[in-house]
Design a protein around this nucleic acid. Structure first.
Lengths: 202, 202
DNA sequence: CGTATCGAATACGTTCCTGTATCCGACCAG
DNA sequence: CTGGTCGGATACAGGAACGTATTCGATACG
């Protein structure tokens, strides 16, 4: 059966990816080695090179997988929201893209890496756009339910992503500071407000 | 003269730092080696170890130096602004913290690095706060001149930094997209607007 | 069953990098 | 001019990681 991979192979691959996630989070991608990943996964380097041609390739595969999963999580979390309760919908949207320390470290380093490689950069930009476009409709419909309409959806999307990323660093740098978290949420509200206008009631 | 360093030593040190900046920007801190830095600087590893005990130490020194310089640049740029021209003051403030590709890559990686190390994390958080507090007054006085007062300065400061960082990534990922840059500036204006309220005229 | 194939393990040579211990030259003081 | 010291160069031994070529065992299939 061409195009199929054996279960054995798939399991090995997955364990390598999982191990790599841990190693990258602990020592950073740059400082990670093929050997460390293999040790952690319980395989030898032979197994690694039978599945990936380089650490870079694995890195990309890992990022694809994780960001796809996150995108799925977001879509799923937003699929069964209560249309009558826009407040909780927005809360669900924010919760769906949580500030995860380890994952932030990895994406930060991957972003830096991607900025050095035009091909990767485009892949990353596209993925960012996909995530933005998945989340955006939720906010738009929620706002509509609150009697507000969004004029420029792209602008709102970019603003939300920027605020999400920018404030995530602050929250992670000062994890014990409740005020920082509060300001983060306030900023979200302010942006939603600034990018939508009250509708004439029907 | 205790506490002093010879000129020769200072020059060597500086050349090593400059070379390191280039190397880090090109291959990333994690993938950089002592040898690469020395080759680039035109020294041997002996000179390196006579100045730094490890790449990590140099990395920290480099970041200190650069971020201090940037802080100085900001302060200087904002020292001689025209008080009668708040528009250009804000423009100067934005220009003072430019979106520099190489520098962004390094700080991104350093941030990830710092998040793994509580001591470094606190150093970084303090530095971020210093930068924020240096820029903040400019915006506050500029807004006042425009007849608006800022109620919560900390909130505005955090918001500006978050927007700056969050949108910087977007700009770097889509360097040719003018719309992204435009949205970035619009977001700045929106934030300035949201975090200030019109004053009763005197 | 037996056999063919697939995938992980092994083993190898090589390159790169590390850190230290020592050397040598330049610069300064007297 | 001369001795001392400071700072970068040299040299050395060791270790880590790489990528490949090959082996060997397991699994699927006739």
């Amino acid at each position: 059966m061409p195009g199929t991979v054996s279960k054995r192979r798939a399991r090995t691959r997955q364990r390598l990816l999982d191990a790599a996630l841990e190693v990258f989070a602990e020592v950073g991608f740059g400082r990670s080695t093929v050997e460390q990943v293999c040790d952690r996964a319980g395989f030898t380097r032979g197994a690694f090179y039978s599945n990936f041609s380089s650490l870079d390739e694995l890195f990309l595969a890992l990022w694809e997988e994780r960001s796809a999963r996150m995108l799925g999580d977001v879509r799923r979390a937003l699929a069964d929201i209560d249309p009558a309760d826009p407040e909780s919908a927005v809360r669900a949207a924010i919760a769906a893209a949580p500030v995860d320390d380890a994952w932030y470290r990895i994406t930060a380093e991957f972003t830096a890496h991607a900025l050095r490689n035009p091909g990767l950069r485009r892949v990353m930009a596209a993925r960012e756009r996909a995530i933005r476009d998945a989340i955006l409709p939720v906010f738009v419909t929620a706002l509509r339910r609150l009697g507000r309409r969004v004029s420029d959806e792209s602008a709102l999307g970019d603003a939300l992503v920027a605020v999400h990323d920018g404030t995530a660093v602050q929250v992670l740098l000062q994890p014990d500071d409740a005020a920082v978290r509060a300001r983060r949420e306030a900023l979200f509200r302010n942006v939603l407000d600034a990018y939508s206008t009250p509708m004439e009631s029907a």
